[in-house]
Each structure stands twice: as structure tokens, then as C-alpha cells.
Design a protein around this nucleic acid. Structure first.
Length: 303
DNA sequence: TTCGCCAAGTGAGTCAAGAG
DNA sequence: CTCTTGACTCACTTGGCGAA
């Protein structure tokens, strides 16, 4: 019986998702490549590992056995890799980070700085939504996760790493642009664009205006900050977004933060990992890097 | 250095099951 | 019945590696 670690890794991914397609996406392969690896593993074992009932994949008894051994083997190798990397200090190692989409304005730059300082470190960055991120956190799939609010219900260590000021954004030629201390009630008179339900930014905005006794005139809901910025630039309304979304603005000046009383709303970015997890030297060093950057994390914000 | 082999991967396609 | 989705196949490419 001969099978490779690669086959184990791919089979474990298929068994986790019970889908060749989703496993392929997760592994950045095509679905046929994943299928071929699992088929070869089955041929080596001499028994089917997966069976298809209708459109659903199921593990066979042999599949359960191979999966258990694959996980033990892969875990052992990962621990070995971590110990060896620790022995080498920060000269070598791997850092797997998952983050919510909105952190893209902050984390890639900090990760870039960190990797430039430690060229031997291989970084893997996964960008996903909060729900999938929490699933990854619960399954301990990453070294660190970056999110906007520490998860309730999960036993995790969460450390604030940077301010995430939420501001009201408008097109540069909006009548309210340039006015000082605009009352929230005045903002509520304008058509508003919100993120989709479940978004932390949306929750914070709704909570603020509700506390002021205002009801927002929601004109549309969009699923990404970029789409909202395009809508603001198109004159479709105002929105509340992280000030970081302007940090890399090529269209600087086209969208501006308004001076609204009570704003910016102060929230924070957190780095988190499961409680009890043994952090690698690389992961610890990256947290230190994030903390060291605190206070001067944001690049020059357009005024 | 070149050549050939092989493993791993891709793209394009078929087939079958489930949903509307 | 038709459309969509996902499993599966096949032909082909690419890159690593050992032998000559």
C-alpha cells in the first residue's frame, strides 16, 4: 500500500467538505485534479473511500479509517514543522491567516511589511466572510484570524490590534460636504446605502442612528464596500464605512467623510485564535508586529 | 546538457441527479 | 421538461528528476 501525503491532504479536504468541487476551491486546484488524487488513493488502498448516494458524497468505513489516519499524520507533520520553525526562530516557517473581507484595507499591508522583514516566512492569507471565518476558527484551520468583533460562544483569545473608525461617507460635491458637526437627524433625511445583513459595519450604523431616535432612509443594500463606494461616487446616497476603505483611494477626493456629530464611531480590529492553542514563534511575532503598528496603522487618510 | 519518463495538473467535455 | 450543478473522463501540458 503506497500513498502520498498529498493524497492524504486532498482526501482530508474532500472528506471535510464532502464535495470534490469545494475541496478543489479550498486547495486552489481544479475539481478533476482533486478527483484524480482521491481515485489514486482509493486504488492504493484497494477499497472505495467515498460513495455517492444521489448527489451526496459519503465516507465509507474504509474512508473513515483513512481519514482518521490522514488527520493524525497531517497534524503530526504540522506540529513537527512548527517545532522546526521555532528552532529556527523567524528564519523559516509558515503563517496562515484568515480575515474578513473588510480587513483587506489593513492586513495585507502589515503582512507585507512582516514578510519583507522575514523573507523566509511563507504567508498564506485567506479572505472570507465572518460566518466562514468563525467556522475556520472553530476548526482551528489557521494560525490567526482577523475580524472586527470577537466571536461570542467560542473560547478564543482575542486581542485588539487597530482602531477601525467608522465614518459617514458622501460624494465630494454633496451639499453636506464641508459642513461642521452635522446632526445625525440631518443624515437620516438623506438616501442611505447599507451593507448586507450580518455585516458588523451595518450593525454599528443602525445601532447609532436608532440610539439617536433616527430611522435611516435605506435606498439599497450592497454586499461589498467597493460596491458601496461606487454607489456613493455615483451620487446614490450616503453610507457608513470604515475610514480604512479610503486609505488606498485612487479616486482620492471623489468620496469624503462628513463631519457628523457622534462620528467617527469607534470600533476595533481583533486578532484571534482558539484558547489553548500553542502559537508558533512566527504567529507570535506577527501579533507583536500588529501591536507595534498600533497607533500608526492607517496610511495617510485623505482629509 | 539533453532526453525521456512520470506525476500532477488543466481545459473541455459528458453524464446523471435534483430543482423548478 | 429544462436547467443547473457536480461527478467523472479524456487528451493534453508542464515541470521535476534521473540516466546517458
Amino acid at each position: 500500500m503506497r500513498f502520498s501525503l498529498r493524497q492524504m491532504q486532498i482526501f482530508a479536504a474532500v472528506a471535510r467538505d464532502l464535495s470534490y468541487t469545494r475541496a478543489a476551491e479550498a486547495l486552489h486546484l481544479t475539481q478533476p485534479a482533486v478527483f484524480a488524487q482521491v481515485r489514486q488513493l482509493e486504488e492504493s488502498v484497494g477499497l472505495p473511500l467515498l460513495e455517492r448516494i444521489g448527489r451526496k458524497l459519503h465516507l465509507t468505513a474504509a474512508g473513515e479509517e483513512v481519514l482518521a489516519t490522514s488527520r493524525e499524520t497531517l497534524d503530526a507533520l504540522e506540529r513537527l514543522e512548527m517545532r522546526l520553525a521555532d528552532l529556527q526562530g523567524l528564519k523559516r516557517g509558515r503563517l496562515r491567516i484568515a480575515m474578513v473581507t473588510t480587513a483587506k484595507y489593513l492586513i495585507p499591508r502589515l503582512l507585507g511589511e512582516f514578510c519583507a522583514r522575514h523573507p523566509g516566512i511563507e504567508a498564506e492569507l485567506t479572505v472570507t466572510n465572518r460566518e466562514k471565518l468563525l467556522a475556520r476558527l472553530a476548526a482551528n484551520e489557521d494560525d490567526l484570524v482577523i475580524l472586527g468583533k470577537p466571536p461570542g460562544g467560542l473560547d478564543v483569545v482575542a486581542t485588539p490590534i487597530a482602531d477601525n473608525p467608522l465614518v459617514v461617507l458622501a460624494r465630494h460635491d454633496h451639499p453636506l460636504a464641508g459642513q461642521k458637526a452635522i446632526p445625525p437627524a440631518r443624515i437620516a433625511e438623506e438616501p442611505f446605502i447599507l451593507r448586507e445583513r450580518g455585516s458588523g459595519t451595518r450593525r454599528a450604523a443602525e445601532r447609532f442612528f436608532a440610539a439617536q431616535g433616527c430611522t435611516l432612509k435605506v435606498r439599497m443594500e450592497l454586499g461589498s464596500n467597493e460596491a458601496i463606494k461606487q454607489a456613493i461616487a455615483g451620487g446614490l446616497g450616503l453610507s457608513v464605512l470604515s475610514r480604512h476603505t479610503l486609505a488606498l483611494e485612487g479616486e482620492a477626493g471623489l468620496i469624503q467623510p462628513l463631519d457628523v456629530a457622534g462620528f467617527p464611531l469607534q470600533s476595533q480590529w481583533y486578532v484571534a485564535y482558539p484558547a489553548g492553542k500553542h502559537l508558533s514563534a512566527v504567529a507570535s511575532a506577527f501579533i507583536d508586529h500588529l501591536l507595534a503598528s498600533q497607533g500608526h496603522t492607517a496610511v495617510n487618510f485623505p482629509e
